[in-house]
């Protein structure tokens, strides 16, 4: 069932529709809140406040944006006002260049010394490969900010780069740089764990 249908049912007072939305989005809300506040308990409070705001405001939701975007906007507004009190500051230096792949993987001419190993025999299998999915999500959880928030919104939740930039009040260029670094870190983490992990 899609979000719009769940929302329609929620408007009719359907409790199951509400819990389904919570199951779908609460983990992401907490994760995004952690971009602004500095501990798990505060993040959980912000997520709960967000759901209260959803229940209060759902009849006024006009559907001009997707439910997801509307939900995340409420979260960010609440997290931001809490986060200001906790004084969390994020520094982004686009010029600070962390290599995507360790320099020793390349020879003096910049060519791969050894071939990287494919993660799956077909890309679409990755979507059904529980081991890869688990490794990827663990790696995302281990990212530092702001990469974690950006990768979560863009790649986990599928927002556009523009939407992520608006939500987090970053420039589109910065979102791209942060996303690039976050994805590179996740890929490299998965590669390491696939080689080390066996199974």
């Amino acid at each position: 069932m899609d979000d719009a249908e769940l929302l329609r049912r929620l408007l009719g007072g359907d409790e199951k529709a509400f819990t389904e939305l919570v199951v779908r989005y609460n983990a992401t809300l907490i994760r995004i809140a952690l971009y602004y506040v500095n501990n798990q308990a505060s993040a959980e409070d912000v997520a709960q406040d967000t759901w209260i705001a959803v229940l209060r405001g759902v009849d006024k939701f006009e559907g001009r944006s997707s439910f997801k975007t509307w939900l995340f906007r409420i979260l960010v507004n609440r997290a931001r006002s809490t986060g200001v009190r906790e004084h969390r500051s994020i520094s982004i230096d686009p010029l600070d260049h962390d290599a995507s792949v360790a320099a020793n993987r390349f020879d003096e001419g910049g060519a791969w010394r050894a071939a990287p190993e494919p993660f799956t025999d077909a890309i679409d299998r990755a979507v059904a490969n529980e081991k890869i999915i688990g490794l990827v999500h663990d790696a995302i959880a281990r990212l530092g900010e702001p990469q974690r928030a950006v990768v979560t919104l863009r790649d986990v939740e599928g927002l556009s780069t523009m939407e992520v930039a608006e939500l987090l009040e970053l420039s589109v260029a910065n979102v791209r740089v942060i996303l690039h670094r976050g994805r590179a870190r996740v890929r490299s983490d998965v590669e390491t764990n696939l080689q080390g992990g066996g199974s």
Binding site: A27, F119, A126, A128, I133, G134, D155, G158
Partner: peptide, 25 residues
């Protein structure tokens, strides 16, 4: 071919990021 493999790893990473995972609520 090596960079093509790298690109496929990146595609797989992004695809798996968006895949529904067992809920951790």
């Amino acid at each position: 071919a090596h960079c093509s493999t790298y690109l496929d790893q990146m595609r797989a990473t992004i695809a798996a990021s968006g895949a529904v995972r067992p809920d951790d609520l």
